[in-house]
Every structure is written in structure tokens, then in C-alpha cells.
């Protein structure tokens, strides 16, 4: 029975998705909202309208980057849940480089800002990995806690030395030489960055020695160690790149979307990145699609509130249900593997 279920996995997922919308519709009608209009409005505004499609893509960029940040170390079975802290540390450093330096030419300033964001995120991501290999602490817990510490450090800096004099948690607007150019409407050049990164990661994991080592560790780290792979070194490299990408997400938000760093730069985007990573099974090309899908649900949810009064939490409800369904799909697969002795 379980094997048959796997064979129809795509159909099963679509059925699940339909069921999620149905559940949302039922609960909306109990709450006294128009269920059909709300669901259709959400999809239409998220994916099928030019103006809001731009917002969807802008929303998708940091989600995709943080999904990369989770997925690359996860190939080696390392859970990088610290994307939020890495994003904030990357963002605050990028914001500082953005407004503190002036008079640099564009082709120096912008790459510098993005690099600094990347390095900031990578350094913050280094802490839990050091704790894991030096002290033996599970990275799941330490990176979760370091998220909050990182965010509060950014807050302290925003309310203190890096904020404006008004006492509001904003930095000054970054120099125009550090801004990502707009391509089309609200879409900024950061969107173009996402594709090459996705392809590079895809080929690194599939075709290079490093990717092979990483996948070996993911299958069984003891066997990999016995086979001569230096587990800690490979994992640290993958975390540096992954965490750096989360930091880059912060820098891209600062430079492409807001043009300043502020306290609410990320409404927990990195956790949505983790959702996307599981939705696309850590496939770097699938993440590009999954990120746009989740970004669209968010945009749709936000705009539906304005049109029909349905709370925007509906999008989070749907995302939670979708994740639960993905989990059930994973479970069915594990069950089938165990039953057939594979």
C-alpha cells in the first residue's frame, strides 16, 4: 500500500494542496468571510497580476537565499537553523558599509556591500559549527538561540551607534552607489543573482569532489570519516557558504528593497526558507520554484486582507498545512522503505 502511494506522489501532493485550501475555506466561512473569493483572490494576487507579481518576486529573493543557506549544509546532515541571526548580522554590516562609505564608484561599493553581508553571515554561522565540533553541542539548539542573540545585537546597534539621531531603529539611507539597480518595476538586480547561485550550488553538490564528500557525510558521517573524509572541515566549509548566503539575503534586502537597515528587515524569512528547502527536497533548482510559490502565497495573503478583510495569517496557516503535508509525504516514504527493507 505505501509503495503505491509513493508512485502517485505528485497527484497526492496536489490533492493535499487542494485539501489545504478546502480547510482554509471551511474555517473562513465559519469566521464569516467569503471563502471562495478569498482563495481565488489570494492566488490571483499572488501569481497572476503584474503589479503584485513584482512583489512576489521581490519577496521570493531572500526566501530563496535562506533556503540555499539551509540546504547546502543539510546535504551533510547539518541543520543550519540560524538563518535569521545570520541575515540580521549580514544586513547590519551591509547597512553600515552602505552609509558609512561615500564617494566610492558603483562597481566597488555595491560588490563590497554584498561581500560584507556575506562575510557577516558566514562569521555568525561559524559559532554553532565551532560549538558542535569543539564542545559537541547539537547545532539545532545553539543556532536557534543564536538567532535571537544576533537579532538583539542588531537591535542594540540600530538603537545605538548605527541608528539615526531620531532614536528610531533605522540606519541612514545608504549611498546611491551601493544600491542594487532596479530592473523592472520593483524587481531589483538581486533577483538575477539568485539563478547563478542556484546553478553553481547544484553543480557543486552533484559534480565536484566537495559535493561528493558532503553527500557522503550526509549518508553516514562515521563511514565518511573512516573513508578518509575530514568531516569537520567539509561541514565548516559548507556552513560558511550557507550562512554567508543568509547574510547575503540581508545585504540584498538592505541594498535592493529598503535602501536602509531597520529592525523589521526580515519577518522571519529564514524560517520560510527552511519550509521551501523541505518543499523542494533540498534541490537547488526546485528551491527557485518553491521560493516563488511561498513568496506568492505571502504576497497574496497580504493583498487579500486589503481586498476582503481576510487576515494575512491565512497565508501562514496555508504554509503550516503545506509543511505538515510535506512531512506526511516524507513519512510515507520512510514507511515504504522500512516495509520493503530498503
Amino acid at each position: 500500500m505505501w509503495r503505491t502511494l509513493i508512485r502517485y506522489r505528485v497527484a497526492l501532493f496536489l490533492l493535499f494542496l487542494f485539501f489545504a485550501f478546502l480547510l482554509m475555506g471551511v474555517s473562513l466561512s465559519i469566521g464569516g468571510y467569503p471563502p471562495f473569493e478569498a482563495s481565488i483572490e489570494m492566488l490571483r494576487r499572488g501569481f497572476f497580476e503584474r503589479g503584485s507579481l513584482e512583489t512576489t518576486i521581490v519577496n521570493a529573493v531572500p526566501i530563496i537565499l535562506t533556503a540555499f543557506a539551509f540546504s547546502l549544509p543539510f546535504k551533510g546532515n547539518y541543520w543550519n537553523l540560524g538563518g535569521e541571526g545570520q541575515l540580521y548580522i549580514g544586513g547590519i554590516l551591509a547597512g553600515w558599509i552602505g552609509f558609512a562609505l561615500t564617494g566610492l564608484p558603483n562597481f566597488v561599493h555595491l560588490p563590497l556591500l554584498l561581500c560584507v553581508g556575506f562575510i557577516g553571515g558566514a562569521l555568525w554561522g561559524l559559532l554553532p559549527v565551532i560549538l558542535r565540533f569543539r564542545v559537541g553541542i547539537s547545532e539545532i539548539l545553539s543556532s536557534m538561540i543564536l538567532n535571537f542573540i544576533g537579532i538583539y545585537i542588531a537591535y542594540i546597534l540600530l538603537f545605538g551607534p548605527l541608528g539615526t539621531k531620531s532614536g528610531m531603529p533605522f540606519t541612514e539611507v545608504i549611498a546611491s552607489t551601493a544600491m542594487l539597480p532596479r530592473l523592472l518595476g520593483r524587481i531589483h538586480a538581486g533577483f538575477l543573482l539568485v539563478f547563478p547561485i542556484g546553478f553553481i550550488l547544484y553543480f557543486t553538490v552533484k559534480k565536484t569532489t566537495f559535493g561528493y564528500k558532503l553527500r557522503c557525510i550526509g549518508l553516514n558521517s562515521r563511514t565518511a570519516e573512516a573513508g578518509g573524509i575530514r568531516v569537520s572541515r567539509v561541514i565548516i566549509k559548507s556552513v560558511l557558504v550557507g550562512a554567508g548566503l543568509a547574510g547575503l539575503a540581508g545585504a540584498v534586502e538592505v541594498s535592493g528593497v529598503y535602501t536602509y537597515m531597520w529592525n523589521l528587515i526580515s519577518p522571519n524569512l529564514s524560517y520560510l526558507g527552511i519550509v521551501v528547502a523541505f518543499l523542494s527536497r533540498q534541490n537547488f533548482l526546485g528551491i527557485l520554484v518553491g521560493g516563488v510559490f511561498i513568496g506568492g502565497l505571502l504576497t497574496g495573503g497580504r493583498l487579500t486582507r486589503a481586498a476582503t478583510g481576510v487576515p494575512e495569517e491565512a497565508a501562514y496557516f496555508l504554509i503550516g498545512l503545506i509543511l505538515l503535508m510535506v512531512l506526511i509525504m516524507y513519512s510515507i516514504e520512510t514507511k515504504a522503505k522500512v516495509e520493503t527493507g530498503g
Binding site: 473562513l28 487576515p311 491565512a314 503550516g320 498545512l321 509543511l323 505538515l324
Partner: peptide
């Protein structure tokens, strides 16, 4: 982790509607 995101999503939604 799924229960965490699912739990927060469903509670905020149920409260809002």
C-alpha cells in the same frame, strides 16, 4: 520543526478569524 511552524501558523490564524 514542522510542528513548530504549523503550530504558530494555525494558532495565529485561528485567533485572527
Amino acid at each position: 520543526l514542522t510542528f513548530w511552524i504549523f503550530g504558530v501558523g494555525i494558532s495565529s490564524y485561528m485567533f485572527k478569524i
